[in-house]
Each structure stands twice: as structure tokens, then as C-alpha cells.
Design a protein around this nucleic acid. Sequence first.
DNA 1: GTAATAGTGTCTTTCAGACAGTATGAC
DNA 2: GTCATACTGTCTGAAAGACACTATTAC
Lengths: 301, 301
Amino acid sequence: MAEEIPARLGIDAVVVGVCDERPQVLTFATDGRPRLPSGAFAPALDRTLELAARRVLSDQAGLREGYLEQLYTFGDRHRDPREVAGGPRFVSVGYLALTGIDDVNCAALGGAWHDWYRFFPWEDARGSRPEILDRIIVPLLRRWTAAARDDAGRAFRARVAFGLDGAPWNNEAVLERYECLYELSTTSGGADAIATLGEAMDLDHRRILATAIGRLRGKIKYRPVVFELIGEAFTLSELQSTVEALAGMELHAPNFRRLVAESGIVERTGAQRRTSGRPAETYRFRPDVLAERPDPGIGIR
Amino acid sequence: MAEEIPARLGIDAVVVGVCDERPQVLTFATDGRPRLPSGAFAPALDRTLELAARRVLSDQAGLREGYLEQLYTFGDRHRDPREVAGGPRFVSVGYLALTGIDDVNCAALGGAWHDWYRFFPWEDARGSRPEILDRIIVPLLRRWTAAARDDAGRAFRARVAFGLDGAPWNNEAVLERYECLYELSTTSGGADAIATLGEAMDLDHRRILATAIGRLRGKIKYRPVVFELIGEAFTLSELQSTVEALAGMELHAPNFRRLVAESGIVERTGAQRRTSGRPAETYRFRPDVLAERPDPGIGIR
DNA sequence: GTAATAGTGTCTTTCAGACAGTATGAC
DNA sequence: GTCATACTGTCTGAAAGACACTATTAC
């Protein structure tokens, strides 16, 4: 075998916060294209991969603690243009970090928060999804599936991913939808859909973000991760709108209250908060729930 | 910064099959210690990480297709003794492969199937768990938590992981339990529990296996992955015992039947199979279920 | 008073667990 | 017939969705 050039290992981090009912992702700009915080893995410095991710977050976002979880490792050929130009393979371990939006020293370091639906406008059922889906995406999918010889495979994927023909919409299938649109864009008649339907990101960072959104939407249902994104004390309305922002869908308020309150995942603080209407009770996360239920999350379907 | 030695990237694969109501994992032997199939990532050869994993599986197990899923990437310092001896950092991307036990050309290549509970005897509620847990593990955990200054943290972890003091047993928390026992073993009085409580594996492969078991136990509930492990036609009893083997617990047969049959995840083949009692109807997986339900799995709690 | 938000009670349907009992084969 | 396994029906309680309703603030 020829002499092997070793792969280069790096870290990409998806840092998520929620502000004003909008989920935000932390980005920097490369030639005007948003990219995720990232850096090289340094074996001499980093005892573990997670510590490497923490170092990157600390250096680039001033973020020193908080929830951090390994997402997925990305290593496709040519995912980094430096490889196309004769460089080595760049493999990246993706991490998901959750934080309060104020815990990040953002502007000082050249970073910016962006509503994540800017990159995936079809993922927000509260906003523009219906029109985008019906007017643009569904017709494109129909043409794409009709054009294929392996018709059944494409059609089935599109149907499951986008809930066509009566199939249910699964809000966790963010990556599957992105990949349908991505492939569709590479075919004739695809009209470069993926580029016009939402904002692009540097390298494969949009794919990494799609992976993160899907993971977070799943995890919220069986792990108490929402609480990493809101303050220590919160009203049930705040909790609800945070969940709605992440899930990209609206929830029925009375049922949400009941589900959350009865699940034991929160407890009253005793304090109230002023609103423009009746003042709201505030709540806090109740860690003991972890010992009481095997899958303590927020019940959304 | 000193000149950086780049990390070396590899693949470790957990290949799972089920035979005779026992979940099996494919291993090879290094100095008598079982290890997982593994190999170096070769950028020149492998267009993607998944294809690298498939190459490893093909070379080492003669396994050319089937279900394959990325698990987790392991990169802790000193996870490979070659690093301790001055070598570079060895980072490994773990993969989970599911297969019928006959699809692997096992003996010819020096591999062997092992019941995975051999490495985690406390994970099987159908077998020896109750005694091991009550007589050995729980007393060790009590001493371990009592000895800690940050009592609350350790005690809480042990309580949640092992279902102490009325907390529920979560059969997905395989890694959390393994890590409790691992840490416990490094403290005085730990009696090297992790080494005596189950068989050791090479490197950190036991941790990788724990990760795989936990992932599979979770996934079975919302994705039709069991069907990768059994033949195309199967009786409901076979399906049940396969699920029980993976989950490490017994299920109530009449309810299991009803749940599975009504969920639309299977359909009758029309053929029957002889048993030692009344002949059983055989069923097959029904792929259309993917388009009907967002989370088509086997309903177990 | 009205508007706005917070919060409660109840009805209905669905679903999961428990259990009793029947069906069909081998011997 | 007995034994073993396969399979069905029904009861019960828990949980989830829909909806009508009340409470407390600002103005």
C-alpha cells in the first residue's frame, strides 16, 4: 500500500440558546458564510474529546461550562475543500452544547447568534413552513421522485421524511429532510433548491446543524435538557414557548401545563413573575425526577 | 506549541446477532482477551467512515451488507497502551452492526460469538442479576458512596443507575452502570469489582460494548431494528424472545402479541411453523409502517 | 368595564398491563 | 386423555388530547 497520509481530527460545536421564542445557534463568519465554532483536536492538550470541545468553546465563545454532548463524527471525502486541493482528510467530531444565551461572550469574539430556522425554514410549523412546503418543496419532491428509475426508494424516503400522502410529520427527521433536499438539488430540475430554500453554511456545517436539531428534538422528550436553555426560575409559559421553539410546533397550553406539572419534573419556587396579564407562578427544575422516572422529559408528540 | 503528533483514527465495530435467546457479540482474541473487530481508517481507501467500517467488517467477518450505525467516538488519553508507550493518540469511531448470526463467516476467520451478558452479567434480569446485584454490587455501591466526600453526587448516580431506594431500573443505562462499577473498582475497597464481576475485554472495548447495548436497547423501542436480527419470517414467540434477549427482561406474552400485532409493524405470511406445541403463524416485517407511524418500534417499557 | 395572560376541571378516547380462558398440535 | 405452546377476549387504570371554564393582573 502507498504511504498513508493520516486523517486530521477536529471538533465542530453546535452551540444552542433560545431567545424570544427563537432557537439560536452560535456562528462565526468565513467569507460571509456562517460556520460553527471549530478547532483542531490537540492530543497533547486534550485529555479527552469532550475536553477538546470544551477548549474550543472556551477559546472561541468564552463558554466554560454547561451541557455538552457528543453528536456524530463526520468524515466524508471532500467535506473540507482543503482536501480537494491535495490536503489530508479532515474528520470532525461534532458536539452539541446548550447554554443560556447570555452565558456566551459573543460579540466580543466576533460571533453571532442566528435563528436556526434561517438555515431550515421548512422546519418551523409555527412560521412559514406550510407555504414553503406546499408551493416549493412538495412539487420539487414530486418531480424528483417521478424522475427516478428506482422510484419506490426515492418516493418512500420523500414520503416518510416530509409526511407526504398522509404520512405523519416527524419533527425529529431534520437530517433526513435535509438530505432529500440536498440530493434533489444535485439532480437536473432540482433548481439548486437547497441553496435557495435556506441560507448556506460553510463546509458541511449545515448538515451538522441538522443532526443537532434532530438530536435535540428527540432528546427533549426523554431527558430534561430544556432546562439548560432557560433560567433557573421560569414560568410554565416560558417553558412552553422554549419547547415550542425547539420542536418547531405549537402545543396546547392547558395540556402542556398538566403534563409538566404532574410529571414531577418541576416544582414551584413560590415566587411570581409579572406579565402583561395575570402574574405567573415561577417554577424550577426538580433533579430528583431523575431517580423517579426512567425517561424524564417533556411530553410532546 | 511543540510539534503536534496527529491522532491516529480507527474503527471499532460491535457486531450483534441473537441465537437461542442469547444476544451474541462477535469477538477476536488478543492474548486471550476478547476484542472487537477493528482496523485503521484509511482515507485513501475509505470514502466515508461508514465505508471504512464496512471494509473492516468485510475483511474480518466476511460481512458485506446489513444494518450499520455510527455509535460514538472514543478518544480518551491512554485508551490504547501503545500511547502509554510513547505512541500517538488512538481515536476510534465505534459502529454498531446488526446481523443474522449465520451471515458471519466466523470460525474461518478466527472470530467467536460470545453472549454479551458474559461481559455484563448484571444486565440480564432473566438470569443471574438479582443475586449478583443484591449480594455483591449493592453492598459495594453502598460502601463506595459512603466513602465519598461529595456524597450526594456519587450516591445519586448509583441510585439512578442501579435503581436503588425505589428508583426504577432503566435497562438503557448500561454505560452509566458500567462507569459506576469502573470508578468503584479504582477506589480502595472496590475489590477490583469490574474485573471479577464479568469478563474483561481488550482496551476500552467493554465500554464500547456497553455503549452499543444501551443504544440498541433504546432504539428497539422506536425503530424496527429487531428485524435485522431475525429471519425474514418469524413467529411472534421468536420475535418476543429476541426482544427479551436484547432488553434483558421478560415480557408478558399476551400483551406483547397484541401490541405488536396492532401496531402494524408486522403482517402474517400465511405460513405456519411447527413447534413442540400448537403450530405458530409466521409473520414478516411490514416496511409501510415507517410511513404510518413516526416511531415504529416494539412497545416495551 | 375590556383585554390579556395564567390556571383548573372534566370528558372522552386511547393504550398498556393483568389475567382468565380457548385452540391446536405432539405424545 | 396430558402436556406444551399458540392465541383471544375482557377488565381496569393511566395517560393524552380537546374543550369549557375560572382567576388575576393592567389599562
